[in-house]
Simulated scan of single mutants.
Amino acid sequence: MTRSTLIFCLAFLGIGRPGNETTQGQNDLEIWKEFVSILKKGEFPKEKVRPYDASLGEALLGFLRQMRETATWEEWEAPEEIHRVGNQVHFLIPLSFDSQKGTYCFSFLVEEENWYFQHMESITIRLDRISTLPTSEFSDVSDRQKAWAREEIYWSEQVRLFNFLSAVKCKELAYEWVKDGIGNGAGYFLGARAWVPFVEPGKAFILYLCWEQSNLRGNKVTLLRLDDDEATVSMKPIYFELYKAAGHLKQQVSFEDYKKIFEAIWRERAANAGWEVTIEYQDEEVVFNLNKTGRGGSKA
């Protein structure tokens, strides 16, 4: 093949032709503009949604509804980045939602002249920016996002197991697993005694609870009171934020069961450390009021 023939073929295919990527980007931007225009008008049409998983369709429509109700439309005018991957186009854009500013990735499926909304995500891992190989460095996300990802993965697995046990056995057995398997009261108290050795065991449990939920789980935790016989801990757990934000959980478990799972875990853990816990809900915070029962916490 001669050099002139090669140049002709590349030009014919659009490879290296000036303006080709620009034209594609302009076409993709039109998808975004049309999407925003439809969203502004009211309820987003179901027929324009093609989620990764069909079960997520209603959840995605719910998120769009919430975003439309609180939208600052000036923020929606121009995405920061546009990425084409096969028959998908992804838009990265910073938006204000739920009283917080964050960067969201909106994904669309493109089929011939039609586009369909496919997904919306608040966590985007920039592994498209990986360095030359070999490498041991991979793009990271914020500590808050990593905590969210850990909790979403973990509780999604536990909810699936809870549903499996409920289906093949019974819900009572599933709750026994929640207490013994997830709660693992004896093991949790052992961890508190082993890792917080310079404090009386009952108090060590309270302090370990605060440390584990704050530093390992990424929850906002406040120790309000710690006496020999009484303690109060306030916590804003990602656990309940997940149920609100992760569409798949609402479809897999009722909020009543989801809440009972949380309470069963902490009652089991507290009881093994010699505490009785009363759980109160105040807006988005959970308050543990703990009173000594005389069991567990006094063990040497």
Rank of each mutant, 00 (worst) to 15 (best):
E157W: 11
F205D: 01
G187W: 08
T132A: 01
D180A: 09
S214A: 05
A204H: 10
A204Y: 12
I130D: 10
E172S: 14
C170I: 05
R193C: 05
A149N: 10
Q145L: 02
S136I: 11
E157P: 01
F189A: 06
Q145Y: 08
S156N: 11
P197I: 03
A186C: 00
Y188K: 11
S139M: 05
P201Y: 08
Y208W: 15
E176F: 07
D143R: 13
A186T: 12
I130G: 06
E151Y: 14
L190E: 13
E212Q: 11
L165R: 14
C210K: 04
E172T: 14
Q158I: 06
V168S: 06
L173T: 09
G191L: 06
A192M: 04
Y188P: 02
Y208I: 01
Y154G: 02
W177I: 00
V199M: 02
G187Q: 03
F162E: 03
Q213D: 04
W211C: 00
Q145K: 14
E152L: 08
R144H: 11
L207E: 14
D140K: 11
G191S: 13
E137Y: 15
T132Q: 08
E176G: 05
P197G: 02
K203E: 04
K203C: 03
A194R: 15
P201S: 04
K169G: 07
N184A: 05
F162T: 02
K169L: 07
S156Y: 15
A147S: 15
F189C: 05
D140P: 01
V159E: 08
L190I: 02
W148P: 08
K179M: 01
L209W: 09
E176T: 15
D143L: 05
L207M: 05
Q145I: 09
V159Q: 12
Q158T: 11
P134R: 02
F164M: 03
R160F: 08
K146C: 00
A192W: 10
A167W: 10
L133E: 07
Y154Q: 09
R144Q: 13
V168D: 10
S214T: 15
R160I: 00
S166H: 12
S142N: 06
W211T: 12
